[in-house]
Design a protein around this nucleic acid. Sequence first.
RNA 1: GCAGGGUUAGCUCAGUGGUAGAGCGGCUGUUUUACACACAGUUGGUCGGGGGUUCAAAUCCCUCACCCUGUACCA
Length: 891
Amino acid sequence: MTELPKAYEPSFVEEKWQQTWLNTDCFHADPQSDKQAYSIVIPPPNVTGVLHMGHVLNNGIQDILARRARQEGKEVLWLPGTDHAGIATQARVEKELSKLSPPQTRHDVGREDFIQMVWDWKEKHGGIIIKQLKRLGCSCDWDRERFTMDEVFAPEVARTFAQLFEEGLIYRGLRMVNWDPVLHTALSDEEVIMTPSKSKLYTIRYQLSDGSGQLLVATTRPETIMADVAVAVNPADPRFAHLISKTVIRPLCEAPIPIIADEHVEIDFGTGALKITPAHDRADFEIGTKNKLEIITVIDSNGHIDCPSMPELHGMERFAARDKSVEILDSKGLIEKVEEYENNVGISERSQVPIEPRLSMQWFLKYPCVEEAKQAVANGDITFRPARWAKTYAHWMNGIQDWCISRQLWWGHRIPVWYRKDKAAELQEAATLDSSNASAGDLYVGVEPPSDPENWVQDEDALDTWFSSWIWPFATMDDECRSKFYPTSDLVTGPDIIFFWVARMIMAGYRFAGEKPFANVFFTSIVRDLQGRKMSKSLGNSPDPLDLIAKYGADGLRFGLMRIAPAGTDIKFDEKQIEEGKNFANKLYNAARFRMMQGEAAANIEPQFSAVHIDVLAKLQKLHLQVSDSLAKYEFNSYTQALYSFFWNEYCSLFLEAVKNDLRDENLAAQKKATLITMDTVLEHYLALLAPLMPHITEELWQSLGFAAQHGSTPLMLSPLPLASSLLTEMDQSAISAAQTKAAALYETANRARNLKAEYNLATNRKVSFVFKPSCELSDDMLSRFALLAGATSASADANYEPAKGTPTALSAWGELFLPLDGLVDVEAERNRISRELNKMSEEISKSQAKLGNSGFVDRAPAIVVEQERARLEEWIVKQGQLKTMLEALN
RNA sequence: GCAGGGUUAGCUCAGUGGUAGAGCGGCUGUUUUACACACAGUUGGUCGGGGGUUCAAAUCCCUCACCCUGUACCA
């Protein structure tokens, strides 16, 4: 007998197999293979990031897809890598600098040294997440790991820029952008989170220059008044028509400014008059441009007031300046009223501070291949799952705006643009720069620096991180790899980056690789805490997956999370679920251990199969179908659930309990052989079906149960999937169905017997005997399996059985069932029990009769449904008769 | 404002027109030689409210409420 611990200990086993897989190159993709290709590129996590629950879900799904594809005989590339994450990483290192004494900034260090520091930091702390992904068991081709700034990828980014520039799609210009005053950089619209916040709406009196009265203006930003260049009213507003083209006195930095007419002003909002501050508001900028108004800037890049002519405010932080300017206005008697007000404020995703709309010189991209990208999703060439995300995508694509791709950062891809030294100053002030300037020889744009670098000055800015990740699906591959594995098969990612990443990759794919980047996009759920909040570091509500792996094993974590991952809605994460994953692993381990304890079957004997053997094999065959079906529909929770319920309920609770005696009783050698063969078949198939989800424990058991040895030492992860069609080959369908019916009757009858025992308060292990007045032929085989399942010492069939008065009885698929208790039972109680059952039965019968008496039902319902109802009714009537007989026997 | 999703047992969730389900929890019993990370039994639901379609509605339609998530904004 094999000595094995009673409980499964995952950590040793998991790390052992992770090592083995890596050492034997199991995950390596061969572009020269003639097998069908299957490929996924990983959504590259931030190089400085650590694994969170979202990653576990995301990469768990990708691993299932990749491993299953290998089993199906495909050549699988799962391409891993990390993202340099410009802002996040730079901010991380700047934080370190600020901790020095005295605190330093990147400017103290200088560009080159600072970038070197980030690289050093990346070498030291980066890539933790890669180790964590390996610990999760991810079967990525680690030899092909890419980094968005490595020596292969970086030139591709520059090449992309250069090509788009030449096409005239990239230009530089003075535009209103989202400015982050803490990080000192522009942000794309997608990086700004509109957040409802409580603020105040101030109504301010602007005096007419001619002294004939005042104009009330409502604003939330009195600190920008010094930059007002006009007040606008709606031309259709009769209240103000007579004022248009008059002037009012700007209340701070006093000067006359015109009253203009513009349709953008809402008549019904506020006072109906809008102050125009082109330098500090997006809409005002447009109105200003349209009306050719001056642009006055009074807030600097730090978010401080820059207005020397207002010394009281000059240099103040913007929010302090707001209070101060209200104070000043109030002292002049210019505040009409102050109201509480809720409006949406744009918050920087990165620094969490309100962004400042600011006029600045930035690089922009007009997206390429927008139409193709739209069409691809609309016509199903690229499938989105769940499908509703296609609508979100279409909505964004229809309102698509030019992408601000420059960031005032040092860590990242530096913009590959050089200015002619003698013209640099002039060029950098130009309102618009594009390929026409390059053709004039003033600009150089290219992957390599110009050949005469001394004559050129490179642009200071870096590119938005997403400008590198949008080419990830093809720029990570060399030509050979691309010809085999591009376009990729599936992309698995979160819906939160549908615009940041997915949409942009589609456009880049069409533009640069001539084809869609992937055939399917699966959007995962978002993992939330039990209160429904998004998991975040600041809330501290995100469990560390590594802790969970330590506690429950990577397999347990994967299983538990996948089981609650619905397709389409968010997950509320509950650690209990992960514990169940661990319990399941333990169950599987013990079932395998049980098999190992039985040894091998005698060679010289014919196996004798019973209905329960055939039944479990038929259920296994069905499981094969459920698994392929669920995976084909990307329904990972139903895949997991099907695996769970087959193994725990069908195999362990029913089948194993019904066959245990075959293994114990030495007179049942033929049955034992059948049982061992069946156990081996089920386990072999089952481990393969489960392997994509729980790769470690299945690999371990594959080995210890001897399946690896039988297949020439092939590890499970490289073994082809056993076929459902290889099961029950020698039986026709009707024989299988007959066996299943027989097995179902056995299990159902055993349940009745257990219920009966419980009803009479007999402990599970109380030794009892059952007697049947059979309604069908009962073999000794079936009776002994029944006794085992029911926890009885014996069961017998006796057509002439005369029960003592009051003997507990039940109806079963096998006929009347008796539990003789030697007169221990109260006749009255038994009579009551049967009467209660009879009442229940009568209710069901009348309900069913009413239904069948309804012509609407009989005529319109599908024939099969009506038939079922009739059969049910018939069955109940028979049972009713039996119960009546039982009741009479008691009297 | 607009769009999408959700509301089913105490909890987490399945369930696309035909007798309301699973796991966990609760309660009762069992250390029966694979597993107490277990086994057996059992208790929990006007399927968010209202209306409609239908012989039949958790399921389809309308409406209301509440909760999410996007997205657009008026100072």
